[in-house]
Every structure is written in C-alpha cells, then in structure tokens.
Design a protein around this nucleic acid. Structure first.
Length: 550
RNA sequence: GCGGUUAUAGUUCAGUGGCAGAACGCCGCUCUGUGGCAGCGGAUGUCCUGGGUUCGAACCCCAGUAGCCGCCCCA
C-alpha cells in the first residue's frame, strides 16, 4: 500500500480490527465470558491509565516493562516562569549555578540567561520532592557543546535524581553541568500517569481501594481489555494489545492461599482453550517459591554462574549479570548442557512452598489436566511467588502455530505479596493473562480461511429490500423498520439502483431479496426470492416476517 | 535499542533506464421489474517521502519514513 507522508495512519504498533475479523474476537470473548461465569468470576473494568507508581511498585522498577516500555506522561503539568524567576532571585545561588527555591534545575556552567527555558519542574514524591527535566531545546543545546553531556544525559540525570534522596542544597557536577537540588514546598502541580502495561496491578489496586477484602469473601474477577507497552512491534506483539485475564484473591481466611485455587485456575484455562478450539496446547508449570526463596535462589544462581559465565554465549553472559533468572530461559543450543547443570529453584524452596506445589500437581492429576513441570520457567514480573505457569502452542516452523517465535499464549502465577507491596492488606492471589492477539492468530492459523468464510456466512442478513424507483424509498425504510422490529436482520437498497444491481448487492449480503415496486405497494403482496434455491414467491406483507424467519 | 526484508490501482502483485501494467474487485452496457454465467467497455496511481545521477528514473545512488519478520526483552 502506498504510504504518502501526509496521510494520518494508525501509530506504530497499533492497528484497526475490522469486520469480519471482529466477529472472531467477539466469539472468543463470549466463550471466555461463558467459561468465567461457570467458575464464578465477575467482570472488573479498571481504568486504562493509572498512577505511574502503581506499576513501579507492583510490576517492579527494574523490570524492562517499567524501566523502558511504558507510556508515561505528566498530567496537569504547570510551569510558571515568573514565579520561578522570583523565587530564584530570592534564593542563595552558588556561583555558576542558579537555584530555585523548592526545585531542582540544571544550567550550563558558563551561566546562561534564565530567559532560556532551561527547566521544567515536576512534583514527584515526598522523598524526592521535585524532579527537573531538561526540555528538548536545552538538551540539544547541551549536546552541541563539545565538553558537556553525551546522548544519555537526560536518562542519566533522571536516574540520579529519582534514585537519590534529596538533601538541602545538594549540588553536583556532570560533564560541566551543575545540578542543584533544593528541598522545598511547592504545591503539587502534576502527576505522573501511565497507560497500563498489564492489568493485575490495577485489579489489586481496586481490591485495596474498595476494601473488597473486608467482605471476607474470595474475589474472583476477570477482565478483557487493551494494555500498552512501548515495544518494537513483531508478530503477535503490538503496542496496544488485548488481554483476557482473571484474578482470584482475598484474605487468607477466604481460602485464597489454597493450592486448590491454583489448580482450579489451571483447570479452567484448560477448559477455556478446549472450548475455544485451540489444538495442541501445553501447560508448563513451576514454582518460584516465596519472595525470600527467590531472593536466596537468585544469589545462589549468581554464584553458580560466576565461574562458568565465560563459557556462555554473549547474551547469557550479560543476563548472568543483569538478570540471572533469564539465563534459565535461554534457547541457545550450545549453552543447554551448562544451564541444565545449574542449581534448580525447586531445591531451594521452603517446605510450605514445596508442599503447596505438590498439592497443585496432585489436584491437576486428579482432574486429568496434563502438564509438565519446567524448572526453568521463571517469570519476569517481580510480584510472582510460588506457582508460575505458561500455556504454549507448537512453536515456529509448525504452521499450526501462527505465532512465529512467540509461542506463549498466556502466562500467570501466584502473587501472595502484591497487595502488601501496594500498601494494602495481606491478600494472596493467583491470576493469568491471555494474549488475545496471539490467541486469535493461533485460531486463524489452526482453523484456516474456511472457518472465517463460514463466520461470514452465518452473519448473512435475513433480507435485502430492493425499492424500485426513488418514490419507493420511504416505503422501503418503513418496511425495514417493521421487519427489524420483528427481529429480522435487514438491509435496504436504494430506489435509484437498477433491479439487476439490487440483486447483485443483495446476493452478497442477504439470504432473501424483497422486491418493493409499484405493484407490491399497491397490492400489499410482496415479491420474495430466496437466493439459495432461486425460488420466487408472493407473500402478504403481514406474513412476511413469519415466512422469512423460517 | 539492534538486524534482515519490503513499499507500484480498493486488494494481491508483475514490471532492471524509454507511453503506468495484470488478475480479482468496482462502475456501465449487452439486459427499462430479476442475481450467480458470459461478452464488451470504463474509472481508479504522490510508483512511500526527500535529494542525487541521467537526454530520460517506478527501476541506479544517498538519506529518511513506514510495514512485516527476527534479536533484545517479555504475556
């Protein structure tokens, strides 16, 4: 398709879903709703954007999702330059730098005029008080100076500020740029918001906010909706993607911690995939233990990796440093033997976690749900504890997949500490999220084009009304209203169409054509033709709906 | 963020320096109130954008943008 530069298009990583494909989406969602209903889940709809802190604390500040893949912006930002200038004049300013009471800002050493909009000021948290950000012009200005900042100046500045607690009049210098931090008491001027990158944190936030735990009841909630991550698009990965997910959580006394809940969720997913008609799915299961188990294990893993690291591929060497758990996920064939020799997390679980996992497996065995334990299955999000799982379909190379290299259809796990991480009461839980985009791709690949064609066939309308002549248009719409109110699906043509054209149009979209000409209007006896049989009959207007329904 | 690849009609695509093309779809006619078939005719283009080379560029060169696929990472 030609893509002229002045044409507005869906932005990178987003797309339009059009009929008839949307029929498939609706079918998937209605099957999901019906399964969830049978397991006692109710629907929850949380906002599409939340306070950035929710994801920073819930998902994990150090995860890739939070550190570089979120759509985040400052909402309600205000910048009153006159006020800033006044406060600056009143402040004690160290030589070569400018200081603003209650704010942090950055200025080149040579001392520029303050008329240049050097800073934007933002309220962040109580601890940090304020975060300054160079505006675009100022960054370019700094970059063009030979002895000053490099390309990641902005990132570097942000990290320094966010990561450190600010004391009065702290000052530092980076590449010839003085950064001055000052405590202050500005009123709140903006809030950092983020498009949700996943929905579990939002659900738990809502659970806390509405004191759902106080009901004493186990909460079973499902959601269907878009999520957002700023990733490079790829097969089955979009920047706005859809997830179907569910969460089971509640106070311990409601049984939320029971391994039965884990098994029930897994068994429900098996049922859902079967009812959707997904073929060849596999359930992979593991336990990552408690938060403490995990921390201990990561340390042990790090130590085990240290002596053999140099034998691993480049990617894994890096992972060994930054995120040892990811080494376990590596598919590099040369490294498999070494990876198999690494300590297994199963050996470092405490007794209750081990026992929990054994009971989950026993319940699955009893319900006849097939699974395989994958000791290497670790999840990227910080909040997971104990049970983690993934459902996959046959991977790349297999045409039945449709997913390319992304063979995970859904993933999830237990998150016993998440509520407390967000400042809520103890509320153990387990949940999952299905990548709906991937689910659809898989269904399309497995069921093929004939399925989609039949989907269209089912949506053919009951009738197409062909008015003959412009004078019949009004009567045609009136007839359509009558029939639609009787529950029929009807399309109306236009009186200017030649009858031949009406027939062609009608055959494409409807099962019957109703001819509405002068004779028909006068007599009240309508002419109906059925496309499938080619039979044409005359039917009294008041018997029409009845006859077409048959 | 990195790599590969692609970009021409509504769609799928052909076109390796010399008039902008095919198939399907769309519109019309053959056929004034009867579709599917057939024949004939027609309309539709920023050849992704900008620059360069050339008498001449959809085509060659440079840069950019976007799609797709993969890597990183992750559901």
């Amino acid at each position: 398709m030609p893509t002229p530069s002045n044409l507005l298009k869906a932005v990178r990583g987003t797309r339009d879903l059009l009929p008839p494909e949307t029929a498939l989406w609706n079918r998937v969602e209605s099957i999901a709703r019906s399964v969830f209903a049978r397991y006692g889940f109710g629907e929850i709809r949380t906002p599409i954007f939340e306070d950035t802190q929710l994801f920073a604390r819930g998902v994990g500040e150090e995860t890739d999702i939070v550190s570089k893949e979120m759509y985040t912006w400052e909402d309600g930002e205000r910048f009153d330059r006159d006020l800033l200038r006044d406060t600056w004049l009143r402040s004690q300013s160290p030589a070569g730098a400018m200081s603003l009471d209650g704010n942090m800002f950055v200025v080149p050493l040579e001392g520029q005029s303050l008329d240049v909009p050097l800073t934007e000021l933002k309220y962040r948290t109580e601890l940090i008080d304020f975060v300054g950000r160079l505006d675009v012009a100022a960054i370019q200005n700094l970059r063009s100076r030979p002895s000053t900042a490099s390309g990641n100046f902005c990132k570097e500045t942000r990290r320094l500020v966010v990561g450190s607690s600010v004391t009065d009049n702290k000052q530092e210098e980076i590449d010839g740029v003085v950064i001055q931090y000052v405590r202050g008491s500005f009123t709140k001027s903006s809030q950092s918001l983020t498009l949700r990158p996943e929905n579990t944190a939002g659900v738990v936030r809502a659970y806390i906010e509405h004191s759902l735990g106080d009901t004493g009841q186990l909460q079973k909630l499902f959601y269907i909706g878009p999520q957002f991550r700023r990733e490079r698009p790829q097969r089955g990965r979009y920047r706005q993607f859809w997830q179907i997910g569910a969460e089971v959580l509640g106070p311990v006394t409601s049984g939320s911690e029971s391994p039965l809940r884990d098994a029930e969720v897994l068994e429900m997913l098996a049922t859902l995939l079967d009812e959707l008609g997904i073929k060849g799915w596999r359930l992979e299961l593991n336990s990552v233990g408690s938060a403490e188990d995990r921390k201990r294990y990561v340390e042990i893993l790090r130590q085990a990796l240290a002596p053999i690291k140099h034998q691993l591929c480049e990617d894994n060497q890096r992972r060994a440093e930054t995120n040892p758990l990811r080494v376990l996920d590596s598919k590099d064939p040369a490294d498999q033997a070494l990876i198999d020799g690494l300590p297994k997390i199963a050996d470092y679980l405490d007794e209750s976690s081990r026992d929990h996992f054994a009971q989950v497996c026993a319940a699955l065995d009893a319900s006849g749900v097939a699974y395989s334990v994958n000791p290497r299955l670790v999840r990227g999000l910080d909040y997971y504890t104990r049970t983690t799982f993934e459902f996959t379909v046959p991977s790349s190379g297999d045409p039945a997949s449709g997913l390319g290299t992304q063979n995970a259809l859904l993933g999830g796990g237990r998150y016993d500490g998440l509520s407390e991480m967000l400042g809520g009461p103890k509320a153990p839980g387990i949940g999952f999220a299905i990548g709906e985009d991937r689910l659809i791709l898989t269904l399309q690949a497995q069921q093929g084009a004939p399925h989609l064609a039949s989907e269209m066939w089912e949506t053919k309308l009951d009738a197409y009304i062909a008015p003959l002549g412009l004078e019949r248009n009004a009567a045609a719409l009136a007839l359509a209203r009558e029939m639609r109110r009787a529950g029929l699906s009807v399309e109306v043509g236009d009186g200017t169409f030649r009858l031949k054209k009406s027939f062609e149009a009608a055959d494409r979209v409807a099962r019957h054509i109703v001819i509405l000409g002068e004779d028909e209007l006068a007599s009240g006896i309508l002419t109906i033709k059925t496309f499938a049989t080619g039979l044409q009959t005359k039917i009294a207007r008041n018997e029409l709906a009845q006859s077409l329904r048959a």
